[in-house]
Structures are given as structure tokens and as C-alpha cells.
Nucleic acid binder design. Structure first.
Lengths: 207, 207
DNA sequence: TCAGTAAATTACCCTAAGGTAAGATCAGTT
DNA sequence: AACTGATCTTACCTTAGGGTAATTTACTGA
């Protein structure tokens, strides 16, 4: 009698399921094209539905974006957090552990990274603030790692620390982008490749 | 009698001068906000003029973009080319020489870098192709540098080479972006900072 | 002084896209 | 068989922005 979580409605599928579908499609679309270039109609079409339904279910375009941002941000943040926490003495160095964690967390939906790092979010908007909040939280974690490094080389310039943190963030973004362009690469393969690349970079003549 | 390069016209200024003004403003705007988010009206307003004038002088929005792209692309390409050419034996290592050349070439108009690396260009458009052409030309130069490095570490995976090239490009982009957020930093200061950052990165425990 | 020309603007058109209102379609219930 | 409620669509409104046509303004030179 009571229809608790039963499939309901007409032609389509229950709301919860449709919402999951939409969020997956929107995350990929926002990540790939960016917020500005993504249209509600396109997202709707991807799941075989029309625009008004998205508005009924999620509200405005920005609300839909926020719906994508939260799970992605949480997932990435905890991935980095745990990767930095378990530093067994036999484990790979922290940067590689973090990268490996990111690749694992993004596997299956690699574009999700760019939901966090979308430069086309309306400045000053709720979406921009929330995305920045997640970025800052991740940067915070990165900062503890880089600070350690900087002490070891004797640099105490705070701007150096900031730039290094920034460079690390940019490097992660770049590597994820490369990964997206090479869909056949597994997270493991990527982690190994990063290790080799780091080793190569270390071979630069220090002038 | 003949009015060769004389100041002409009415209230404003001669066309050549206005065009230079517009190109400077548009380059900054395209670089800062990206192609999509830049509006003709905004660029026009920046130089105290209205939209139709831009169309009369440059044609379409894309034409205006191409007008910005060409000088920027040429400037950056030759900067990198010459930086890689003069490797005296006492000089800093190639990556740092290239960065220094970029900072010098971009000084006074740092956003110009992102005219080349704008992800919001209409896919398949003339603008996208031309920008890609410049990027590829610069990458080509970078590839000769990274290939040398890779030989020295024994890796012969072509994907490693591609990823390294890609990572280098991304690192440059990231460093320029940091620089834009720190307007008081001179090119010299940036070059020095990059050297310190590289040294710090080399201190990562190789696992 | 008056014609010619360059510089620039006002007023307009058209399309794309965010957003909404109202109705259509169907599952299950009574 | 009619009702209820969930799903989903058609048709529409509104705004922003690229682009154009026609006109105005003012300098220059005869």
C-alpha cells in the first residue's frame, strides 16, 4: 500500500534515479566544457530529457552546479586527506601518494576535477565561493607538505611557499588533463608515469 | 598637402592609434576572462568607445581575437626560440632560461599568455586552430629539451615524453598565473623564485 | 564657406540560453 | 471507471550579446 522507495511515475524513472543520472551527466559536462559553456538543454539532452525537468528538480543552473560540486569536492578532499595521513616509512613519497589517491578518486569521472577548478564560474557567486572553499581546503593540506620541503632547502620566503603550493596545484591539474586526453591509462599506470616524470625532472642540471 | 601619417578625423584619434589601443585592451580582456566571457561592449568601453567601432575596424569578435593572437604568439614563440638557442656553458639550465624569457616577453601584459592558452575558444574555429598552431610550435621547442632529459634517465616511453612536455607547458601556465596574482614581482624576481622552487622540488624523497 | 572624408554613435535585428507556467501522460489506488 | 499524484513536455517570456545600417560630428583642404 504505502509506496516507499518504489519506482513511480509515468514513462520515465523515479526522481531519485533521474537525479543521479542528471548529476553524473552535468558533472561531466561542467568539467569538460566549464560552467559558462555548459547549457541546461545539453545536459538534459544527454539523459534524454528536456530542460524544464532539470529546473524542477534542481532549481537554477547554479543550483545544479552546486549539486555536482558537493560530492566531488568531498570525495577529492577526503582522498587527499587520507593519502597524506598514511605515510608508512616504506610508502612512496607524499606527492606521489597524493597523485595516486587523486587518480583513484577520479577514475570513472576524470572531468570531475575541473568542476573544482573551473575558471568560468560567475565571480562572486555562491558557486565560485564554494568551489574556492574546497580548493583552499586541499591547498591547506598541500601547504603542510610543501612547508616541510621548504625548510629542508632553507628557504623561508613566504611567497616561495605560496608559489610552490600554487605550482603543485597546477601540476595536478595538468596531469589530470593529460590523463583525460589518454582515456586508456589506468590510475596505476598514471601513478607510475608521474614517478618517472618526477625522476626525470630531478635530472635537470642545477646550473 | 599630402596628409601622410597625420592625425586625422574628428573628436577621437587616428584609426591606427585607436586600433593599437583596442588591441591592447582586448588582449588583456581575452587573457583575463577568456574568449567566451569577453564581450565586445566591454572591450569598447575600456577604451572609451562603442561596440560598432570595433566591428568596423576589426570585423567579427573572432577577427579581433586573431588580431590579438598574432603578435602575442609571435612574440612568445621567438622569445622561447632564442632562449633555447643561446646555451652558453655558464648560463642557467634551459628550463630556467626559457622561463626567464617568457617573463621578460610578458612583462607589461602578463595576461597575454592566456590568449594562447584559452580553453574557451569555439572548438573547430579559425581562432582555435591558430592558437593551437602557436602552442604546438612552442611545444615542439620544449620537446627537444625534454627529449634530452628523458634520454639521460633511460626512459624511452613516448607517452612519458608527451606527458613531460604537457606537464612543462602546464607548469609555465601555472607560474604565469601566479605571477599575474602578484603584480609587484619583477621578471628577475620570478626567475629567481622559479630557480628556488625547482631546487626545492628536487629535494623530494625519491621513495 | 563648403564639400569631402574620417571617426564615432544611435537604433536596431537576431539568436542562444536561462527560466517559468501550464498542461499532457501514465501508474497505481479507491 | 474515475481520481490522485508523479513524471515530463510544449510553449512561452526575458535578457545578453554578436552584428549591421544609417546617421551624426568635426576636422581638413580647396
Amino acid at each position: 500500500m504505502t509506496m516507499l522507495p518504489t519506482r513511480a511515475g509515468t514513462k520515465g524513472m523515479p526522481r531519485a534515479e533521474r537525479e543521479r543520472q542528471v548529476l553524473a551527466a552535468a558533472t561531466e559536462e561542467f568539467g569538460r566544457r566549464g560552467y559558462e559553456a555548459t547549457t541546461m538543454a545539453t545536459v538534459a539532452a544527454r539523459v534524454g530529457v528536456t530542460k524544464p525537468l532539470l529546473h524542477q528538480y534542481f532549481g537554477s543552473k547554479q543550483d545544479l552546479f552546486l549539486g555536482c560540486l558537493e560530492p566531488v569536492g568531498d570525495r577529492l578532499l577526503t582522498a587527499v586527506r587520507t593519502a597524506m595521513a598514511d605515510h608508512d616509512n616504506g610508502a612512496p613519497p607524499t606527492p606521489l601518494r597524493v597523485l595516486r589517491a587523486l587518480f583513484d578518486a577520479l577514475d570513472g569521472q576524470r572531468e570531475a576535477w575541473f568542476v573544482l577548478y573551473d575558471p568560468s564560474l560567475p565571480p562572486g557567486s555562491e558557486a565560485a565561493h564554494r568551489a574556492a572553499h574546497y580548493r583552499d581546503a586541499i591547498d591547506e593540506l598541500a601547504a603542510t607538505g610543501t612547508a616541510e620541503l621548504l625548510r629542508s632547502t632553507g628557504s623561508d620566503d613566504p611567497l616561495d611557499a605560496d608559489a610552490l603550493k600554487y605550482a603543485w596545484r597546477g601540476l595536478c591539474t595538468t596531469l589530470v588533463r593529460w590523463w583525460i586526453e589518454h582515456p586508456d591509462q589506468s590510475p596505476e599506470a598514471m601513478a607510475g608515469r608521474c614517478a618517472r616524470i618526477f625522476a626525470t625532472a630531478r635530472a635537470v642540471d642545477p646550473g
